[in-house]
Design a protein around this nucleic acid. Sequence first.
DNA 1: CTTGATTATGCAACAATGTTGCAGCAAAGA
DNA 2: TCTTTGCTGCAACATTGTTGCATAATCAAG
Lengths: 138, 138
Amino acid sequence: MEVAVKKLLKSYHLRSTPVRKQVLDLFIQTSHALGKANIEAELDEIDRITLYRTLRTFEQKGIIHQAIDGSGKTKYALCSHECSEHEHHDHHAHFYCTRCEKTVCMNSITVPKIDIPDDFQIASAQLILSGTCKNCQR
Amino acid sequence: MEVAVKKLLKSYHLRSTPVRKQVLDLFIQTSHALGKANIEAELDEIDRITLYRTLRTFEQKGIIHQAIDGSGKTKYALCSHECSEHEHHDHHAHFYCTRCEKTVCMNSITVPKIDIPDDFQIASAQLILSGTCKNCQR
DNA sequence: CTTGATTATGCAACAATGTTGCAGCAAAGA
DNA sequence: TCTTTGCTGCAACATTGTTGCATAATCAAG
Ligand SMILES: [Mn+2]
Ligand SMILES: [Mn+2]
Ligand SMILES: [Zn+2]
Ligand SMILES: [Zn+2]
């Protein structure tokens, strides 16, 4: 609630503003990744530009990470506690449901190590799984 | 050249138009994936909307496939010959160079089989590798 | 509690990608 | 050459995303 979110923001050396509290609270409350449109649907009357800046700030601080799902829309989800301002450690797969368009972190599935030609220097790897989630299977 | 591209289009039951010939030829000539901006840079005076429709058509016919690279830009590359109007078979990784922003198909690297909870029904999987390509390593 | 430095907000303005509808034009087969 | 069918290019729109700047809010210090 209120106080916890405030403390959390403070621990990241971020000021507690209405937008940041609302957005962070929403991420904590939600089990799937959230993009601009999703957040706006939940949090009415919130300024687009401020939202974009809030997301960028949260990402830089290691609070949230991008959940790339091939949908073309940038979504974010809460980081695990190992992430920091200096480095993200979200080496898990993401599942994208093509029916409901929700994206979830599959924390149990780590991206496999890949051997590639020396011509390429890999800095990071991402695994996207798509299909239908439980709710969308009839 | 000219004639070959024309034949190729015909084999997919597509009319040979200037835009289609130019775009298909460019894909054949290029070793990395191409997005809207890339194509426009190479092919001047080509209409945006027609380009988008051309790309969509080529994708539907199994001529090109999306090369998702996490850059937020939709790029395409030529399909292997197994792809058709009915199904794409491009189960390889894509490498994205964060320096030059070029994306290439890594045909030799197939996306590993993943075991996931039954809650999810996987239809496809994609692997994105990012880092620096040969040209961009100093 | 008040004050002041610093930071965040919200608006305007812009840029890029992508989609649809529609009239006119071109390709390909007859 | 003609006709049908499919393709093009324009307008118009929607969505995502960025930057600059004046104003407002936060928070730590006094
Ligand atoms: Mn994640
Ligand atoms: Mn490919
Ligand atoms: Zn679903
Ligand atoms: Zn490169």
